[in-house]
Structures are given as structure tokens and as C-alpha cells.
Write a protein that binds this DNA or RNA. Structure first.
Lengths: 168, 168
DNA sequence: GAAGATTGATCGATCAATCTTG
DNA sequence: CAAGATTGATCGATCAATCTTC
């Protein structure tokens, strides 16, 4: 036990940056904060609307683009795989919230968009969702929110510089 | 299309806070930043170690407690459901990284801990993971990291005040 | 050959129900 | 009756493979 504790207290040897331990703590805090809020929103969407976060997320992207979006574009914006979208869309078509039609100009492409029912359902959920988010962030004041927004932008840019660097 | 755009531009009417739209944007940035980093770590864990983030996450909690943890305690720390843990632990037992034994004092309780193999495997992955995180956050300087850490703590506290308030 | 989409296998996650034990 | 754990049904997510179309 003592040796394990010592190993934890000791700074890492092979890390690429001097305070990589602090970066890991920062990453864990970012992850747990997001997960805490996400779980609560997920729970409320289920309890009050009988829906899920991925469904809501997909509908929110479609609501912004009344002309419709391709599956690939949606999967890129939602940062999930292509195969994931196929099933998710399938279930939303089943429930009548989304419709799918092939593109006129490229027969490989499927365009999806909200139905009238989907739009109405989304608007009601979006109002509640917005209030929930405001409630969850209530203790964060205005300057704090602005600063957090800016720091997350910097973090995202930093991560993107790594994930987008694959050559060829 | 024009009316839909107008609806988006117009500030929400029923929101509980004056700038709840800005809070939603902040929440989406928090979520996408976390997801971006999470997806990259997930990909690297798979490619270089043939493992997954939940497995790594579970092992990291066990590595901090050589005496073992109960399933409930682990599920609380990982912020996932109890039923989820049962399956995850089952697979890690199958691969020889984790062992499970019933508690001596309370026969309802199952204690789990890393095996020697699990500990060795985890140490190697943890070194790589730490370097990856440092790389992903590389463009964030020291004061920025400190400030982000503090703002996330405030955000987490704000959200906890909501999620923990259920009476009775 | 490359891109868009779908399929199938597998894992991770939730919830609701159940079983055992305290 | 509470709490810890497991089970079963279902959804969400990934990857690898395949099919069609460009």
C-alpha cells in the first residue's frame, strides 16, 4: 500500500511535459463536469419527454438546417460514427420525427430533415433544455462564463491541432 | 427558412435566466471539447493497447485503492450505473486484469481489485495516457490551465447544487 | 479507387425488475 | 423495508466489412 501511494505521489518520469500530472487532473475535471451535467440532462429528457440526449442532439442539428443535412454532415457535427447515425435516424423516422430522402444530385447521399411533428416536439424540448442548462450553470457569474468560454475555445483548438494532424 | 433563422436569432422567452442562450452555447462548447479529447484518447487506447476508455477508467480507480473497492463505490466514482459495472468487471475478470471476492463483513458486498497483471498493464497505459493528455492540452499555458481548473470547479459545484437537491 | 451509407458483431450504458442480505 | 449486486431488454456507439455511386 505504501509503495503504491508513493508511486502516485512521485511525479511521472516519461511524460512529455513537465506538469503532465496537473494536465491529467484538469482533463479529469473537464470530463467529470461534462458527465455530471450530461447525466442530469439525459435523466430529465427521459423523465419529462421520454426521449434521449442523442435524439435531442440530432434534432437540434436538423432544426438549424430546415433544408436538410446529409448523414455524413450530421455525423461530423455530432462527432459520432456514420454507422451510429443510420440507426439513430432509423428510430426517429419510426417515431415520425424525421424524414429521409435521397439527394437529387448525388445518388449516394441521403438527406434528412425534421418533420412538422419533429419540429414541434423539438421546440418544446428546447425551451425546457435551455432552462435546465441555465439552472445547472446558475452559480457561474457572467465574467466567469465568458472566461470559461474562451478557455474552452483555446483547449479545443489545442486538441484539434493534435487530432487533425494525421499526414497523407 | 427565413422564419426559422429568425426564430433562432430571437432570444428565448420562457428561459429562467436572462442569458440562457449563452449558457447553452457554453454547455455545448464544454460538451464538444470533452468529446473531442475523449474520442482521441479512446482511439489511441484502442490502437496502441487494444483496450477501451471505460476499462482504463475502471482500472485507474482500482489502482488508487490497492485494498479494493465495492462495486457501488466504483460506480459512484465513475458516475455510471450499477448494472453497467457488473458487465465491465466481468470482462476485466475474463481478461485477468481484475479479481472479485465477497466482503467478509457484509455478504451483499463484492470487493474488486487489480491483479498483478492488471496493475502492470495499467502502469504502462497510464504513462502513455498522461503523455497524450499533455499533448492534447499543450497549447494551454500554465495560468490558463489554472484558471480553467478553477472555473470547472465552480461549474461542477453549480451543477451539483442542482443534482443533489432532491428532497427525501 | 474514394466517398456515402448500411450492415453485423461487440461493447458500453441505462432502466426496471429481481434476489440476497442487512 | 434498504442496500448491494445481478439480470434482461433496449439503445447508443464503435469498428470493420460491404454495396452503391461518383
Amino acid at each position: 500500500v505504501a509503495t503504491a501511494r508513493a508511486a502516485l505521489a512521485r511525479p511521472a518520469k516519461d511524460a512529455s511535459a513537465p506538469n503532465s500530472r496537473a494536465r491529467v487532473r484538469l482533463w479529469l475535471r473537464l470530463l467529470t463536469t461534462a458527465k455530471l451535467i450530461e447525466n442530469e440532462l439525459r435523466r430529465r429528457l427521459r423523465v419529462r419527454f421520454g426521449t434521449t440526449l442523442p435524439r435531442f442532439d440530432l434534432m437540434s442539428h436538423l432544426e438549424r438546417e430546415p433544408g436538410g443535412l446529409t448523414l455524413s454532415e450530421v455525423s461530423r457535427r455530432m462527432m459520432v460514427s456514420n454507422g451510429n447515425l443510420t440507426g439513430l435516424v432509423e428510430r426517429l423516422i419510426e417515431s415520425g420525427h424525421v424524414e429521409r430522402r435521397p439527394s437529387d444530385t448525388d445518388r449516394r447521399v441521403q438527406l434528412i430533415r425534421l418533420t412538422g411533428l419533429g419540429r414541434d416536439a423539438f421546440r418544446g424540448m428546447a425551451r425546457a433544455h435551455e432552462a435546465w442548462v441555465a439552472e445547472l450553470f446558475a452559480e457561474l457569474d457572467e465574467p466567469g462564463a465568458d472566461e470559461l468560454m474562451a478557455l474552452l475555445a483555446r483547449t479545443k483548438a489545442s486538441a484539434r491541432a493534435v487530432t487533425d494532424e494525421e499526414p497523407t
